[in-house]
Amino acid sequence: MTEYKLVVVGAGGVGKSALTIQLIQNHFVDEYDPTIEDSYRKQVVIDGETCLLDILDTAGQEEYSAMRDQYMRTGEGFLCVFAINNTKSFEDIHHYREQIKRVKDSEDVPMVLVGNKCDLPSRTVDTKQAQDLARSYGIPFIETSAKTRQGVDDAFYTLVREIRKHKEKMSKDGKKKKKKSKTKCVIM
């Protein structure tokens, strides 16, 4: 069974824990209790493949930012979460993405942009803004509501699919490099 290491990042209060708990335990946590770091595991079937999701729910508070490099190193894919009623959390996505790329030393890291709290009427981040940002990053965008469960499975499952595509691409690139290195030079 394939294991996928997913990391949920975003500013404090955007609903990272609520999304994760909704996926794992099928219930909505409405009281806000700032996370330092929590880890969850769940076995699911995605596109006919049974897999184990190892999900790291991270601290959004700035005082825990020193811990970010460590979990970013171990993560295979990242859910970059903002709240649709919090423009600052949307603007912060850029910083999370840049930090992930720096730590992973790669421009090509599996990510999904997630606009959470889409059940709320007080939207300050337009869907088109988020779609445009995701398009500019070359990553999928999904709106979710941890409260109603809308888009929750889709967000995590899409990230797994992005990781699969990335692994497939990397193995193809690896095979191309191996083929090239088999060419021999004969000096007579």
Score class of each variant (00 low, 15 high):
residue 103 V to C: 13
residue 153 D to K: 06
residue 166 H to Y: 06
residue 34 P to S: 03
residue 154 D to C: 05
residue 128 K to P: 05
residue 6 L to M: 09
residue 104 K to C: 12
residue 38 D to W: 00
residue 186 V to I: 14
residue 128 K to C: 07
residue 108 D to P: 04
residue 36 I to P: 00
residue 141 F to H: 05
residue 22 Q to S: 08
residue 31 E to I: 11
residue 20 T to Y: 00
residue 26 N to S: 12
residue 18 A to E: 01
residue 8 V to D: 03
residue 19 L to M: 14
residue 170 M to C: 06
residue 39 S to T: 14
residue 74 T to G: 11
residue 20 T to M: 04
residue 68 R to H: 02
residue 148 T to M: 05
residue 157 Y to N: 09
residue 95 H to A: 15
residue 34 P to Q: 03
residue 45 V to F: 09
residue 151 G to Q: 07
residue 114 V to T: 03
residue 79 L to W: 02
residue 150 Q to G: 11
residue 169 K to C: 08
residue 132 D to Q: 05
residue 99 Q to V: 02
residue 181 S to R: 13
residue 149 R to S: 08
residue 150 Q to S: 15
residue 86 N to K: 12
residue 138 G to S: 09
residue 4 Y to H: 09
residue 53 L to S: 13
residue 146 A to G: 13
residue 22 Q to M: 05
residue 8 V to N: 05
residue 61 Q to A: 13
residue 41 R to V: 10
residue 117 K to Q: 14
residue 72 M to T: 02
residue 28 F to M: 04
residue 13 G to I: 07
residue 99 Q to L: 12
residue 184 K to R: 08
residue 40 Y to V: 01
residue 16 K to G: 04
residue 119 D to W: 03
residue 83 A to T: 12
residue 7 V to C: 11
residue 41 R to H: 12
residue 64 Y to T: 00
residue 67 M to S: 00
residue 5 K to H: 11
residue 60 G to I: 00
residue 94 H to T: 04
residue 67 M to H: 00
residue 83 A to M: 07
residue 63 E to K: 05
residue 53 L to W: 07
residue 82 F to L: 11
residue 69 D to A: 02
residue 5 K to M: 08
residue 156 F to E: 02
residue 37 E to P: 02
residue 187 I to G: 14
residue 150 Q to V: 06
residue 31 E to K: 04
residue 111 M to G: 01
residue 19 L to Y: 04
residue 140 P to T: 03
residue 99 Q to Y: 05
residue 44 V to M: 15
residue 114 V to H: 02
residue 14 V to M: 11
residue 81 V to E: 12
residue 20 T to L: 05
residue 41 R to I: 08
residue 32 Y to V: 02
residue 138 G to V: 03
residue 55 I to W: 02
residue 128 K to D: 05
residue 42 K to G: 04
residue 31 E to S: 06
residue 175 K to C: 05
residue 168 E to L: 04
residue 134 A to C: 07
residue 142 I to A: 15
residue 104 K to N: 15
residue 186 V to L: 07
residue 6 L to Y: 06
residue 23 L to Y: 11
residue 74 T to Y: 11
residue 175 K to Y: 06
residue 27 H to T: 14
residue 149 R to K: 06
residue 31 E to L: 13
residue 82 F to K: 02
residue 75 G to F: 03
residue 53 L to Y: 13
residue 30 D to T: 14
residue 57 D to P: 00
residue 98 E to N: 14
residue 39 S to C: 15
residue 168 E to R: 06
residue 86 N to W: 02
residue 124 T to N: 10
residue 131 Q to A: 07
residue 14 V to S: 09
residue 107 E to S: 11
residue 78 F to P: 01
residue 20 T to F: 00
residue 141 F to C: 07
residue 164 R to Y: 14
residue 116 N to S: 13
residue 82 F to W: 07
residue 42 K to M: 12
residue 10 G to F: 03
residue 121 P to R: 07
residue 165 K to M: 04
residue 78 F to A: 00
residue 127 T to S: 09
residue 53 L to A: 09
residue 108 D to H: 11
residue 178 K to Q: 13
residue 170 M to V: 09
residue 169 K to V: 04
residue 43 Q to D: 13
residue 162 E to G: 07
residue 39 S to P: 00
residue 18 A to P: 01
residue 13 G to V: 13
residue 144 T to A: 09
residue 169 K to A: 07
residue 43 Q to K: 13
residue 102 R to M: 11
residue 72 M to S: 02
residue 35 T to Q: 00
residue 50 T to I: 14
residue 39 S to N: 07
residue 30 D to P: 07
residue 9 V to M: 06
residue 117 K to A: 14
residue 142 I to P: 02
residue 56 L to N: 01
residue 156 F to R: 01
residue 96 Y to W: 15
residue 54 D to Q: 03
residue 83 A to R: 07
residue 158 T to R: 06
residue 102 R to L: 07
residue 81 V to R: 01
residue 139 I to Q: 04
residue 142 I to L: 05
residue 46 I to R: 13
residue 39 S to D: 06
residue 158 T to G: 08
residue 134 A to G: 06
residue 68 R to W: 01
residue 142 I to S: 14
residue 39 S to H: 01
residue 142 I to D: 08
residue 20 T to E: 02
residue 32 Y to M: 02
residue 147 K to M: 08
residue 64 Y to R: 00
residue 168 E to D: 09
residue 150 Q to E: 08
residue 106 S to G: 12
residue 45 V to I: 09
residue 2 T to R: 12
residue 51 C to E: 13
residue 98 E to F: 03
residue 99 Q to G: 03
residue 45 V to M: 14
residue 170 M to G: 14
residue 15 G to R: 00
residue 135 R to M: 09
residue 61 Q to C: 09
residue 133 L to E: 07
residue 95 H to D: 12
residue 165 K to D: 11
residue 71 Y to L: 00
residue 26 N to W: 11
residue 3 E to A: 09
residue 176 K to V: 07
residue 13 G to Y: 07
residue 127 T to N: 11
residue 47 D to W: 04
residue 164 R to P: 13
residue 101 K to L: 12
residue 51 C to Q: 13
residue 69 D to E: 11
residue 11 A to F: 14
residue 74 T to N: 08
residue 137 Y to A: 10
residue 101 K to P: 01
residue 101 K to V: 11
residue 113 L to F: 11
residue 18 A to C: 08
residue 177 K to A: 12
residue 15 G to H: 04
residue 12 G to S: 11
residue 10 G to V: 09
residue 4 Y to I: 13
residue 68 R to M: 03
residue 36 I to A: 06
residue 75 G to W: 03
residue 151 G to H: 15
residue 141 F to V: 13
residue 155 A to N: 03
residue 71 Y to K: 00
residue 145 S to L: 04
residue 151 G to Y: 15
residue 38 D to C: 02
residue 5 K to L: 02
residue 66 A to M: 06
residue 113 L to D: 02
residue 67 M to G: 04
residue 63 E to A: 06
residue 141 F to Y: 15
residue 16 K to I: 00
residue 74 T to M: 07
residue 175 K to S: 06
residue 21 I to T: 15
residue 165 K to S: 10
residue 183 T to R: 11
residue 76 E to H: 05
residue 17 S to C: 01
residue 29 V to C: 09
residue 123 R to K: 11
residue 110 P to H: 06
residue 24 I to L: 10
residue 84 I to E: 15
residue 109 V to M: 04
residue 173 D to M: 03
residue 32 Y to E: 03
residue 151 G to L: 13
residue 80 C to E: 02
residue 110 P to K: 03
residue 113 L to M: 10
residue 181 S to M: 08
residue 94 H to R: 14
residue 162 E to F: 05
residue 101 K to G: 08
residue 65 S to P: 00
residue 34 P to T: 05
residue 13 G to K: 05
residue 175 K to W: 10
residue 40 Y to K: 00
residue 33 D to K: 00
residue 188 M to Y: 09
residue 63 E to W: 02
residue 120 L to F: 15
residue 118 C to P: 14
residue 14 V to C: 06
residue 141 F to L: 11
residue 168 E to F: 05
residue 156 F to L: 05
residue 172 K to H: 12
residue 103 V to M: 05
residue 165 K to L: 12
residue 27 H to S: 13
residue 92 D to C: 04
residue 169 K to I: 07
residue 55 I to M: 05
residue 93 I to A: 14
residue 122 S to N: 12
residue 167 K to D: 09
residue 90 F to W: 14
residue 22 Q to K: 08
residue 41 R to Q: 08
residue 157 Y to M: 08
residue 83 A to Y: 04
residue 158 T to A: 14
residue 180 K to V: 15
residue 128 K to L: 06
residue 18 A to Y: 01
residue 16 K to M: 01
residue 33 D to P: 00
residue 50 T to H: 12
residue 3 E to M: 14
residue 187 I to D: 14
residue 186 V to D: 15
residue 146 A to V: 05
residue 122 S to A: 09
residue 188 M to F: 06
residue 157 Y to A: 13
residue 95 H to I: 04
residue 14 V to E: 11
residue 25 Q to G: 14
residue 90 F to A: 13
residue 126 D to V: 07
residue 138 G to N: 03
residue 9 V to R: 01
residue 35 T to Y: 00
residue 176 K to W: 08
residue 113 L to H: 02
residue 27 H to A: 14
residue 155 A to D: 03
residue 14 V to W: 09
residue 57 D to L: 00
residue 77 G to E: 01
residue 11 A to Q: 07
residue 103 V to H: 04
residue 42 K to R: 09
residue 60 G to S: 01
residue 141 F to A: 03
residue 54 D to I: 01
residue 167 K to M: 10
residue 94 H to W: 13
residue 143 E to R: 03
residue 184 K to P: 09
residue 127 T to Y: 14
residue 102 R to I: 07
residue 21 I to W: 04
residue 121 P to Q: 10
residue 188 M to I: 03
residue 32 Y to A: 03
residue 41 R to E: 08
residue 43 Q to N: 13
residue 168 E to V: 07
residue 35 T to K: 00
residue 122 S to K: 07
residue 163 I to S: 03
residue 180 K to N: 08
residue 12 G to C: 06
residue 129 Q to K: 13
residue 49 E to P: 11
residue 178 K to F: 09
residue 18 A to K: 05
residue 17 S to L: 01
residue 50 T to A: 10
residue 64 Y to G: 00
residue 141 F to N: 13
residue 5 K to W: 02
residue 135 R to S: 10
residue 127 T to A: 05
residue 91 E to A: 14
residue 96 Y to E: 02
residue 21 I to P: 00
residue 145 S to H: 06
residue 53 L to D: 03
residue 110 P to I: 03
residue 167 K to I: 06
residue 43 Q to G: 12
residue 15 G to Q: 11
residue 65 S to Y: 05
residue 147 K to E: 08
residue 167 K to Q: 08
residue 26 N to P: 05
residue 138 G to R: 13
residue 169 K to L: 06
residue 45 V to G: 12
residue 45 V to L: 10
residue 129 Q to R: 09
residue 158 T to W: 13
residue 37 E to G: 00
residue 77 G to H: 02
residue 7 V to F: 04
